[in-house]
Design a protein around this nucleic acid. Structure first.
Length: 852
RNA sequence: GCCGGGGUGGCGGAAUGGGUAUACGCAGGGGACUUAAAAUCCCCCGGGAGCAAUCCCAUGCGGGUUCGAAUCCCGCCCCCGGCACCA
């Protein structure tokens, strides 16, 4: 139907033109003054990419486009939108690739960054190129090191020797968050436990706030739940079990609990005991339990093999067996150790404790089903009411008494398996008959009076190990001195620059390649002036990315990490979009660092991201994209053929943005055709503009309904249905080959603009606008009057089955509707000879005759 | 095992304060234009029966509530993701 008076749509030409325009005008790149002067700031963020040698992949483009659509929409609504991007270029991933291809990362990264920058421009993202960060730039990591020093000063960064995860392939330690099912998240190798002195950030001190703040931040449910699982809060009590070893005389102690001394856990070193700690008069083993109500059923105890108490508690005749078991456990990797199906193993230590409730002497065992990293590294075993303890007791013929009776059970009902359900207490002295809930409260109170119990909350979350025995990261800014111990590098001496070395291959020694560079690590102690040695480990990449969004507005300032004025007006981030794979990694760390900087007075907010939305995953042929499957999408040829606009539109149309979708190569034909028809419709309207507007009330109604729907859905990231609505509208505008007028197509342009910004700019300018479509709040206004229907089609049912439809005016009365319905032949036929028992009338929707 | 999310045509997906299931698009079929092809445009497109009007069946499975259920309730099955010997 096109009259072909206008030029055909050439995506390549249009997109090149507008990318040049945006760049020349500096449309999206703010100066410091502009950022400071913003009246209605909106900080829109996406997770900055790791600049791989392969270039942007579809996952990146999908996420970035989804975020960019949001930014452009906010811009069209008149907000001042800040949307920066940067490069997360430090880390093992980059380093491994550099090692593989034999090019130094200092040479490789700039190339990759240049290529990414080119591709990011090509997809038409509204990025502020005046405010980028590169984590490998000393001007950036100077402040990463500064953050380390602030945490060190505040006691939130501590060096401790602790069991850590060693990846034998990456040859470095990893944080717990980087170990997935006992394997390295990078290379999938089985992780080995090692005990090395490392730097830790005390994120566990923030567990409660990291959990609680989820009440007020607006995050995707899936991400929120993943974080809550990871933090793993549990409520229970710590109970003290006095040690009564056979060789230790208890004579002369009238009441063992009167002089009870507890060994409290030291959160940095585990249990304080052995040579370093004074042995108390009547020492106790502390245990953590969520079921203090079952304490009368605790017939033995189990310590983790790594528990330092084991050294001290084991009797001479059991020592050989205990030592053998401990070393056999030390050999195991985490996966084999933590297999649930594994038969329970363990060894008796020869020692006994008193059950504080029954005062019975119970044996102390060690077994690898008890983990040192949780609670106190020791448990009271209640075989009757815990599956693991049941299995263990069964294996070693330990008594299994019942202390909880479920429905239909009593104190003597035999236990054939652990009973973990609800019930009442039995065989528990004065507490018999209480419910589990009452028992928990009353037993803790009773034991607390003896000094043997205290209510406690426990978290699964462990401290963040940030040391890496690798090369490609920011050196941890401390110096070791024989005299002064650990001396922080003075802030004025930052950055501690990573030296360029050619041999940066990691090895198995447990120290970083930097430890081979004597001229670099040998230095002067900043506090005494004596001989000093630099820390040769570098910090975790996730420290680099834990604060990049804080830096973006302040990149013009080299004298401070954060410009106070800009930080105050632009942060926290209004909307953050990214992948859920970072739920317990980056997103947890960024919250922690922000919280710590808040507490130290550097920020006036404690949550970095007011709103976070996790995008879905793009799959192809129902399967995750991977090189080995050969189903990876290469974006450049697609953009070449259909243009960035069509590609963006297609990606957003695939499925709900927060759920992802299945990519099919032919699918782009739909959105591409839509853009062509849009082009044709708008230019046709321009051509016949002199003929004047010709309002069509039906089209105008549809227009306002579309504005309403799209305005509701786009800010909620419901892109696929918003695009469908735009398509429907254009279909109606062009229905039957009619020629549209300007008023019908013009409002379509700003609505399409977030998805397809280049063609929108071009059509907007062809309509005679001088300014960019994104300047001046051009989003169309919805008029409810104009959207109002005048007539409706109502469904007519007979006994709930659809038998016809009737067309009538909006708000038609039941009488009128019934009359119309009875005229319908099919309806009349189904009513014939039947008695109407009831009529259900839903105004403007349906009429249902219920017949007998 | 626990915690999220999901299961609708050949495919991606619409529609959940219950009210015309399958919008929008892909793929497929038919037609127009063309010397031809591409592009474009028009029509058809869940399954079954029927010349047709129309009827029956269908939203993972089995029950229930209701005039009416993809949507609510009960009991299951399957897929994706998080946690998992966490006491």
């Amino acid at each position: 139907m096109s009259n072909h008076r206008h030029t055909p749509y050439s995506a390549a030409e249009v997109e090149r033109k507008w990318q040049d325009q945006w760049e020349r005008r500096g449309s999206n790149a703010y100066t410091r003054e502009q950022l400071a002067a913003a009246r209605d700031p909106y900080y829109n963020l996406m997770m900055f990419p790791y600049p791989s040698a392969e270039g942007l992949h579809v996952g990146n483009i999908y996420a970035f486009t989804g975020a960019d659509v949001h930014a452009r929409y906010q811009r069209l609504r008149g907000k001042d939108v800040f949307q920066p991007i940067g490069f997360d270029a430090f880390g093992i991933h980059s380093e491994n690739f550099a090692l593989k291809v034999g090019i130094h990362p200092m040479d490789l990264i700039p190339r990759n960054v240049a290529n990414f920058t080119r591709q990011l421009r090509r997809i038409g993202g509204m990025f502020d190129w005046n405010h980028t960060v590169d984590t490998t730039d000393p001007a950036y990591y100077r402040w990463t090191q500064w953050i380390f020093l602030q945490l060190l000063k505040a006691g939130l960064a501590v060096r401790k020797k602790a069991p850590v995860n060693w990846c034998p392939s990456c040859k470095t330690v990893l944080a717990n968050e980087q170990v997935i099912q006992g394997r390295c998240e990078r290379c999938d190798s089985l992780v080995e436990p090692r005990s090395i002195a490392q730097w830790f950030f005390k994120i566990s001190d923030f567990a409660e706030r990291l959990l609680e703040n989820h009440r007020f931040i607006d995050w995707s449910e899936s991400t929120r739940k993943a974080q809550i699982n990871w933090i793993g809060r549990s409520e229970g009590a710590e109970l003290a079990f006095p040690v009564v070893t056979p060789w230790q005389a208890l004579e002369g102690v009238a009441d063992p609990f009167a002089e009870l001394t507890r060994i409290w856990r030291d959160s940095s070193t585990g249990i304080a005991a052995g040579e370093d700690a004074p042995v108390p008069q009547l020492p106790c083993v502390p245990v953590y339990t969520t079921r203090p109500d079952t304490v009368f059923g605790a017939t033995y105890m189990v310590l983790a093999p790594e528990n330092p108490l084991v050294d001290w508690i084991t009797t001479p005749d059991q020592r050989a067996e205990v030592d053998a078991y401990r070393s056999s456990v030390a050999q195991l990797d985490l996966v084999s150790r933590q297999k649930i199906e594994k038969t329970k193993t363990g060894v008796f230590t020869g020692a006994y404790c008193l059950n504080p409730a029954t005062e019975a002497r119970i044996p102390v065992w060690i077994a690898d089903y008890v983990l040192m990293g949780y609670g106190t590294g020791a448990i009271m075993a209640v075989p009757g009411h815990d599956e693991r303890d049941f299995d263990f007791a069964h294996e070693f013929d330990l008594p299994i008494p019942r202390v909880i009776a479920g429905p239909g059970q009593d104190a003597s009902t035999p236990l054939t398996e652990a009973f973990t359900g609800d019930g009442t207490l039995v065989n528990s002295g004065q507490f018999d008959g209480l419910t589990v809930e009452e028992g928990i409260v009353q037993i803790v109170e009773w034991l607390a009076e003896k000094g043997a119990a205290e209510s406690q909350v426990n978290y699964r979350l462990n401290d963040w190990c940030i040391s890496r025995q690798r090369y490609w990261g920011p050196p941890i800014p401390v110096i070791y001195c024989e005299e002064c111990g650990v001396a922080p590098v003075p802030e004025d001496d930052l950055p501690v620059v990573l030296p360029r070395i050619e041999d940066f291959k990691p090895d198995d020694t447990g120290v970083s390649p930097l430890a081979r560079v004597v001229e670099w690590y040998r230095t002067v102690c900043p506090s005494c002036g004596g001989e000093g040695r630099r820390e040769t480990d570098v910090s975790d990449t996730f420290l680099d990315s834990s604060w990049y969004f804080l830096r973006y507005p302040s990149t013009d300032r080299s004298d401070v990490p954060l410009d106070p004025e800009l930080t105050g007006s632009w942060l926290p981030v209004d909307c953050y979009i990214g992948g859920n794979e970072h739920a317990v990694l980056h997103l947890m760390y960024a919250r922690f660092i922000t919280m710590a900087l808040h507490d130290l007075g550097h920020l006036d907010f404690e949550e970095p991201f007011s709103k976070f939305r996790a995008h879905g995953l793009i799959v192809r042929g129902g399967a995750k994209m991977s090189k080995s499957r050969g189903n990876v999408i290469v974006p450049d040829p697609i953009i070449e053929e259909y243009g960035a606009d069509a590609f963006r539109l297609y990606l957003m149309f695939l499925g709900p943005f927060e759920e992802g979708g299945d990519y099919r190569d032919e699918g782009i034909h739909g959105p591409f055709g839509f853009l062509n028809r849009l082009w044709d419709a708008v230019l046709t309207a321009v051509d016949r503009d002199h003929e004047g507007p010709r309002p069509d009330p039906e089209v105008e109604r549809k227009l306002h309904q579309t504005i309403q729907q799209v305005t509701g859905q786009v800010p909620e990231l419901q892109y696929n249905t918003a695009i469908a609505a735009l398509m429907e509208y254009l279909n109606q505008v062009r229905a039957g080959g009619r020629t549209p007028c300007r008023a019908e197509v013009e409002p379509l342009i700003p609505m399409v603009a977030p998805f397809a910004p280049h063609i929108a700019e071009e059509l907007w300018s062809r309509l005679g606008h001088v300014d960019s479509v994104f300047e001046g709040g051009n989003w169309p206004e919805f008029d409810p009057e104009k959207a109002r229907h005048v007539s409706v089609t109502m469904a007519v049912q007979v006994s709930g089955k659809l038998r016809g439809t009737i067309l009538g005016p909006v708000g038609m009365s039941q009488e009128r509707a019934e009359a119309l319905a009875r005229e319908e032949e099919n309806v009349a036929r189904h009513l014939e000879g039947k008695e109407i028992r009831k009529v259900v009338f839903v105004p403007d929707r349906l009429l249902n005759f219920v017949v007998g």
